[in-house]
Simulated assay, not measured.
Amino acid sequence: MSKELVFYTNPMSRGRIARWMLEEVGAPYRTEVLDYGTTMKAPEYLAVNPMGKVPAIRHGDTVVTECAAICAYLADAFPDAGLAPAPADRGDYYRWMFFTAGPLEAAILDKTLGVELPDDKKMMAGYGCYDDTVDALERAVTGKQFVAGDRFSAADVYVGSHIMWGTQFGTLPTRPAFEAYIAALAARPAHVRASELDDAAMPAQPAQPEPA
């Protein structure tokens, strides 16, 4: 009997990244949508993720949290999907996935919060400075269809999601290299399916009153 795969998420979260990865994998999974402040902080879910955050997956007895880890795990757990390079070819795969999870996320958060590091403290931050981090990401995808090698991988799910969100919401600048890289990714059938599923799970908006 195959292991049950359970996906814990909220459509207004980084769970959208994991959903896309699950759709790329193509294995059946069950979704549990959790609400902020209630079921996400309930004892039942805290037993899955003590941080009380989504996404998370449970695959049989194995629990994985953190989007980059979920993407890497699913690529290895379902090798027939072909979403991870051969072990000897994983330099860029690991490099850019975890660059995005670490330096890029930190640089974007500080920029969004208005945190400005003084020049003599920049070497203390893993990302150095926002501009250098964004420039490095741009070089990683310039002239490339995929960020790690010559085929689509879990790294494209993770890196591509961050570039899509960042350019959409203004936390990353719009640059030709970013637009060219994400255009084909956004059109992938698995990405389209994942977006439709998450959009359908969005809470209903309250009806607006009729104008007087």
Score class of each variant (00 low, 15 high):
L172A: 08
R30K: 15
D131R: 10
T100S: 00
E116L: 12
C129R: 12
A183S: 13
M124Q: 14
D120I: 02
R175L: 13
A125R: 07
G160V: 00
Y181A: 04
D92N: 03
P79I: 05
D120E: 13
L109E: 14
V147G: 06
D35V: 13
D132C: 07
Y29F: 15
A84F: 03
S13A: 15
A86E: 15
P28G: 00
G91L: 15
V134Y: 04
A200S: 11
L113T: 02
L22W: 10
G149S: 09
I163W: 13
F152E: 02
L34E: 04
S195A: 12
A187W: 01
R16A: 01
A186L: 10
W96K: 06
M123L: 12
R139N: 09
G15S: 01
D80V: 06
R193A: 05
R175W: 04
G128T: 03
V134N: 06
K121V: 12
A18Q: 03
K53W: 12
D135R: 14
L22Q: 07
F146Y: 15
G60V: 01
P103C: 09
A183V: 00
G114N: 07
D199E: 15
A200R: 13
E179C: 06
I182R: 10
H191T: 15
M164E: 13
N49S: 10
D198Y: 07
R16C: 01
F178T: 02
V115A: 00
P176W: 09
A190E: 00
A212Y: 09
R151V: 04
A88M: 07
G82N: 02
G160S: 00
A56S: 03
L137R: 02
F7T: 04
R19D: 10
G143F: 05
W165R: 11
N49W: 10
V33M: 11
T38V: 11
D35A: 15
Q205P: 01
Y29I: 05
D89M: 05
A75D: 04
K111L: 07
P28L: 08
V6P: 03
L172H: 09
A184K: 14
R30G: 04
G149I: 03
F178N: 02
H59Q: 00
A207L: 12
N10F: 11
Y94S: 01
A56M: 04
L46R: 12
P203H: 13
P103M: 10
Y94L: 14
T167E: 05
D198R: 00
L104H: 01
R175Y: 07
